[in-house]
């Protein structure tokens, strides 16, 4: 399976993602934001970081990068695109997934482990995964998912909510919501479910000696689904 990670100026999780993808068998290529064409890939990852210094709005400048037209075309032709953290912010700015990510409710940068409940396994990202709850890491200042009431209705009707913040037993409640996101939303799909944006970082949970293993679970399952 082939993957590509796009590096924008200010991306800082691109190499972690490269290491993680290779660990689970992806042949990964790094792509610079000023490139025009994507290498042939089964998965494109928009990594975390602070692209363009978060100027204007997080992800807004990166969403207008040269490479993004190819990314949008790839998405529209059914290609798998995963945006993590700042990558999620870039996805909402391109309009590939609905909504926006506002500043965290209590105005603090949040860096901690959280639990997320897998809300939908009817897609290539979570199909067959042997767990309903994952422990992953978040590190963000703007992860407060917001959308209009009309958008929320559409998202719910189409079952586009991918993961919700929860406790370790999978209970989704206000008290387990770290950043004020509507409905505890931590990740969301496009309508066709080939594009996934999420705030948690699976690439930070691939080594038991450093953190946890739930990122391994997710990425191993993902490559198996793509085979």
């Amino acid at each position: 399976m082939k993957s590509a990670v796009i590096t924008f100026p200010g991306s800082n999780c691109d190499r972690d993602m490269d290491v993680a993808l290779k660990k689970f068998g992806f042949k990964n290529k790094m792509v610079w934001h000023q490139d025009v064409e994507l290498p042939k890939s089964d998965l494109i990852v928009l990594p975390g970081g602070f692209s363009y210094g978060d100027y204007l709005r997080c992800g807004s400048m990166a969403s207008k990068s040269k490479i993004m037209q190819s990314v949008i075309n790839f998405a529209n032709s059914g290609g798998m695109i995963m945006g993590i953290c700042n990558g999620f912010q870039i996805l909402v700015e391109t309009g590939l997934v609905p909504g926006v990510l506002l500043r965290n409710k209590y105005l603090e940068f949040i860096c901690k482990n959280v639990f997320v409940k897998i809300n939908d396994k009817n897609n290539d990202y979570f199909k067959n995964i042997n767990s309903n709850v994952l422990e992953l890491h978040i590190a963000h200042n703007e992860g407060n998912y917001f959308c209009t009431n009309d958008q929320l209705k559409e998202i719910e009707d189409n079952e586009q909510i991918a993961i919700n913040y929860c406790n370790q037993n999978g209970q989704v409640e206000d008290s387990f919501n770290p950043n004020g996101s509507i409905k505890n939303i931590a990740g969301i799909f496009n309508k066709e479910k080939n594009v996934l944006g999420m705030m948690p970082h699976p690439e930070r949970m691939i080594d038991t000696s450093l953190s946890g293993e739930d990122g391994s679970l997710f990425l191993k399952n993902l490559i198996n689904n793509l085979k």
């Binding site: 204007l56 807004s60 926006v100 959308c147 209009t148």
Partner: peptide
Amino acid sequence: KLLANLVI
């Protein structure tokens, strides 16, 4: 196209 995000 850029300056405002019309969702918010």
